Amino acid sequence: MVDQPTADGDVVDSVLTALADPTRRQMLDLLSARGQATATTLADGLPISRQAVVKHLTVLDTAGLVGSVKVGREVRYAVRPEALDATARWMAALASDWDRRLAKIKRIAEAAERDDAHRQ
């Protein structure tokens, strides 16, 4: 498996946990499309209450996927791509590691097949 420094591993774990929920993924899509939005605005586009939106935003914020800024009485949320970037790098490294392993298995299987063909 791909070795990760603890901090990056923690980020990846938080991101994957946050993204496991389809409502949170939908919220990220909405935020990406709008640039910024309040919890109330997001709740208008989702089949959940504003309070549920706030709870989901807390999970996304903890994972580093969104950030917030207070503008007057409103709290506006926006996507923060850094945590996604770290997760994408981890996934790319994992995919590369598996590609190397599968290529090795393929070479071993092909060599065994050639050996069997020569013996017959």
Rank of each mutant, 00 (worst) to 15 (best):
H118E: 12
P22S: 10
A63D: 02
A52M: 11
Q51T: 09
T62L: 10
A78D: 03
D44I: 03
T38K: 08
D21P: 10
A20F: 07
E74D: 15
E110K: 01
D8K: 11
R73Y: 12
W98Y: 14
R101Q: 14
T87K: 00
E113R: 09
V75E: 06
L46K: 05
A52G: 14
D13K: 04
A18V: 06
T38W: 11
L94G: 05
E113Y: 03
D97R: 06
D61S: 14
S49G: 13
D97F: 10
R34I: 00
G72P: 06
Q51M: 07
T62K: 11
D3I: 11
L42H: 03
L28W: 05
T41D: 15
L84Q: 06
V53T: 06
A7C: 03
P5W: 13
R80H: 15
V53R: 01
D44L: 08
D29P: 00
R34V: 00
V71F: 02
L65M: 12
E110D: 14
G64P: 09
R73H: 12
T6V: 13
G67A: 14
R101P: 05
G67S: 13
A83F: 05
T38C: 11
E110I: 00
L94N: 07
R25F: 06
A93V: 05
L102M: 09
S49Y: 03
A43T: 01
L28P: 06
A103M: 03
